[in-house]
Design a protein around this nucleic acid. Structure first.
Ligand code: ZN
Ligand code: ZN
Ligand code: ZN
Ligand code: ZN
Ligand code: ZN
Ligand code: ZN
Length: 813
DNA sequence: GAGTTTGAAACT
DNA sequence: CAGTTTCAAACTC
């Protein structure tokens, strides 16, 4: 309103507001609808767009999407978490849903969109709403199921098939994520990935099937994580940030790896082509990759259970496998949708997510889907009402979801962290890891703590679930968290419609905990929000992409040591920082804030980033990583999170995902959390903090987290940074690379199996102490996703359509 | 909590 | 693409 922007915004707003009800007729509306992923009917369109735009390629891939039933299962597990966790605020959800839907429709069945959608989307949402409220996360499974559904929905069967077929993944990277991250990732991610994978798999014959499996799981983390839980809904939102980061994990070739393997199938691989798929794989955590492999998804779950939550896990499985899908799915709604964004991201991420651990919650991302679902759920739930509406909602939901979150967001806040992303995905993960060590974890890193908390909540809820008691517990947890708030943005002049706003930037709606004024980043203005978002994306395709990307690559560094592991270290900021006075030692520096070292892409002066200086060679970083203490205070600690850097030359590459919906990101983010957790300072504090404060939150919400963190204490906060999202460099790069250099792409995809042991060092250690076995065992498999489609497509679609409109209006003034 | 610093986002 | 302005977070007190 106010100034120039005001006009634009107004325009948008007007459209928006109107849009929902009556406006549909207006051109804008159309435009929007096109843009917006979800708009009811349009899911299909959406999907198309995504496909078109994002995935120029291979439709086939998408087609298969659902395919991955298997994954679903696995995902389910994870998903559940995600779903639960995520509120769905984010637009993502919508996007995701859209994708899914699209996929489904296209491939699966166009005929009954609703059905399809329902299955996929629905689940999550509905489930969450109804169930969630009651159970909330009680049972992850549900969520999972939802997620899966969302993503894949029905398809389990399909998926499985695919998986089977694919078993051989072309490449798989195995990363050892920190526990936290691992856990998280999987769930949400899995879902997503699954979907994609499926496609891929189908498409890809994965030649390798034989390959040992490299399943790469990509995990995306949502940094933000801002997951919010709604008491009612139970859903949580992820913060944008969380979403942003994505991680990918590769699996070991071993075989199976973990979940991913099975589910993933991944082969995913290769996704590149496929990539798009969203997916996120699940991170499954394979404790021991090998060992557990057998049931990927199950494994994951199991692991989780074992370690932490037996009950839940059990439930999950059952749920997941069994009913959840169907029933819930059907019921539900699909809320989940993936938002387009997600899709885009997904592709994005999938290809490269990396997980940074920043936020533990990685869920988001990869989860983007999953997370989305979670988010969606919320949204759905929130919205409520209607199934039929779902679709439309979806659209909204993406953003909308936030509604719910809003409420509980606050709670979440502190908790928010916890809430946040983790939600589903993370939750699982967290659960495993965290639960076990919750405390430990907490200590470990703020992020961790957050995660753990969130996880706990989730877990609790899950566990509890059955009776619904869980809910209360959940709430408690959340509330406990504290109600606090978790602050989020504090915008005064941007109306929360610019990237200045963390919420908006993260792809999530503002919630109660936000202290913004004249906020338009609300579900009610979803249209506006989406429009502006598109505008911004058109201007900068990477605007909503996760800030942190992982390079996964094979860079020597990763391999370096044993070749086994890879490092998360590779994570770096997508655009690099431009610090002049902070020496990259304060949060003013986005790199530092994200717990990643500066890279060549940074233009900082006198860089002293404890996570890695601009000039540091990968090798050095690794060393630091390994011996943090030696280096420096923070560095050491930090390293844990971002242990090693590889060269990530190309930051720029990141793929641009058009829609950033957070959810996706969020999911992805979780993985990252690891990093965050550890954050330098935090570490020390962290441990304490968390516990004490408790609530710090979860990293997932990284972006938001800051506030929280702050309040909570540094730990949490610090963690947030960690949370940032990481995308895998690989992915990103690939994308970019693809564009620019085909070759790389390939590489990326094939780098293959590396296991990486996350830097968790400390955090892990801590944890490990508590429960060593798991940790070590867990591995995430990331598949390298192919690159993404170039930004362009996405842009185009949007631009074309809406773009003009919006711009026109916008430009007016 | 007010005020300052900082660097990204937005704008020109 | 560079320079400037705007913005909100990070930080300081
Ligand atoms: Zn805001
Ligand atoms: Zn806000
Ligand atoms: Zn706001
Ligand atoms: Zn910097
Ligand atoms: Zn930097
Ligand atoms: Zn620097």
């Amino acid at each position: 309103m106010e100034s120039p922007e005001g006009d634009r915004i107004k325009a948008s707003l007007s459209s928006t507001s109107a849009s929902s009800p009556a406006v549909q007729d207006s051109p804008f509306f159309n435009y929007l609808s096109n843009l917006s992923p979800i708009q009811s009917v349009k899911a299909a369109r959406y999907a198309q767009r995504f496909f078109e735009s994002r995935f120029p390629t291979p439709p086939p891939v998408f087609r298969s999407p659902h395919v991955d039933l298997q994954r679903e299962t696995s995902f389910l597990k994870s998903n559940d978490v995600d779903a639960g966790g995520s509120d769905g605020h984010g637009y993502h959800s919508n996007q995701v849903n859209n994708k899914l839907i699209a996929c489904l429709q296209k491939e699966v069945q166009p005929s009954s969109p609703s059905a399809c959608v329902d299955e996929y989307l629905t689940d999550p949402v509905e489930v969450e709403d109804s169930k969630i409220s009651a159970d909330l996360r009680v049972q992850p499974t549900n969520n999972v199921g939802q997620l899966l559904r969302c993503g894949f929905t029905g398809p389990r069967e399909n998926i499985r098939k695919v998986n089977d077929a694919n078993n051989g993944n072309p490449e798989g990277y195995v990363f050892m994520l920190p526990e936290q991250s691992r856990v998280n990732m999987p769930s949400s991610l899995n879902l997503v990935e699954t979907a994609d994978y499926q496609a891929e798999s189908s498409t890809l014959p994965v030649s390798g099937a034989e390959n040992p499996e490299q399943h790469v799981t990509q995990i995306v983390k949502l940094q933000n994580a801002g997951i919010q839980h709604n008491e009612q809904d139970g859903s949580c939102q992820l913060l944008p940030e969380s979403l942003q980061s994505v991680e990918a994990y590769q699996d070991c070739s071993d075989s199976s790896r973990p979940v991913s393997k099975g589910s993933f199938k991944e082969a995913t691989l290769y996704q590149r082509g496929i990539r798009r798929h969203l997916q996120f794989e699940a991170p499954v955590v394979c404790k021991s990759t090998t060992t557990h492999k057998s049931h990927s998804s199950h494994n994951v779950i199991q692991e989780v259970d074992n370690s932490k939550v037996p009950a839940s896990h059990t439930d999950l499985e059952s749920l997941i496998f069994s009913d959840v899908d169907p029933g819930e799915v059907s019921n539900g709604r699909e809320s989940i949708s993936y938002s387009p964004t997600i899709a885009s991201w997904t592709s994005f991420s999938s290809s490269e997510f990396v997980g940074s651990n920043q936020h533990s919650r990685s869920l988001a991302i990869s989860g983007p889907i999953p997370s989305d679902s979670g988010l969606h759920l919320k949204s759905i739930g929130g919205s409520g009402p209607m199934d039929s509406d779902l679709i439309p909602r979806l659209k909204l939901s993406g953003y909308m979801s936030s509604k719910d979150h809003g409420r509980r967001d606050c709670l979440a806040k502190d908790s928010n962290k916890s809430l946040f992303s983790p939600e589903a995905g993370e939750i699982h993960a967290h659960v495993d890891n965290y639960q076990q060590d919750n405390q430990t974890i907490v200590e470990t890193g703020p992020a961790a703590s957050q995660c753990s908390e969130s996880m706990k909540s989730l877990c609790d809820s899950l566990h509890m679930t059955p009776s619904k008691q869980g809910v209360s517990s959940e709430k408690k947890a959340i509330n406990t968290g504290e109600g606090d708030g978790c602050k989020r943005c504090n915008c005064r002049r941007s109306k929360c419609l610019k990237l200045y706003c963390e919420c908006f930037a993260a792809g999530v709606f503002c919630v109660d905990s936000c202290a913004c004024k004249d906020c338009f980043n609300k579900p009610e203005y979803e249209d506006t929000v989406l429009d502006l978002r598109q505008q911004i994306e058109s201007r900068d395709p990477l605007a909503f992409a996760p800030k942190i990307v992982k390079h996964a690559t094979n860079s020597p560094a990763n391999i370096v040591e044993d070749g086994n592991w890879t490092t998360p270290a590779s994570a770096r900021h997508k655009r690099g920082c431009n610090c002049k006075k902070s020496k990259c030692l304060k949060k003013y520096c986005e790199c530092y804030q994200a717990n990643v070292g500066c890279s060549d892409g940074c233009r900082c002066e006198d860089c002293c980033n404890s996570f890695g200086k601009k000039a540091d060679s990968v090798y050095r970083r690794v060393q630091r990583w390994e011996n943090p203490s030696a280096d420096g205070t923070k560095a050491g600690t930090l390293k844990q999170f971002s242990p090693r850097w590889e060269d990530l030359p190309d930051i720029s590459h990141f793929t641009p995902l058009p829609l950033p919906y957070p959810k996706v990101l969020a999911s992805s983010a979780s993985p990252i959390s690891d990093y965050q957790e550890v954050p330098h300072t935090q570490l020390h504090q962290g441990s304490t903090l968390k516990s004490s404060s408790g609530h710090c939150h979860w990293h997932s919400s990284m972006s938001f987290m800051p506030h929280l963190c702050e309040s909570s204490a540094g730990h949490g906060c610090s963690s947030d940074s960690a949370f940032h999202d990481l995308l895998k460099d690989d992915d990103m790069p690939e994308t970019l690379k693809e564009t620019s250099t085909p070759t790389k792409t390939i590489k990326v995809s094939s780098p293959n199996q590396k296991r990486v042991s996350p830097p968790q060092s400390r955090s892990q250690e801590l944890r490990s102490s508590s429960s060593p076995g798991l940790r070590s065992g867990r591995k995430f498999i990331l598949q390298a996703m192919p690159s993404f489609p170039p930004l362009t497509p996405y842009m185009k679609s949007k631009n074309d359509t809406g773009h003009s409109d919006l711009k026109g209006e916008a430009s007016d003034h």
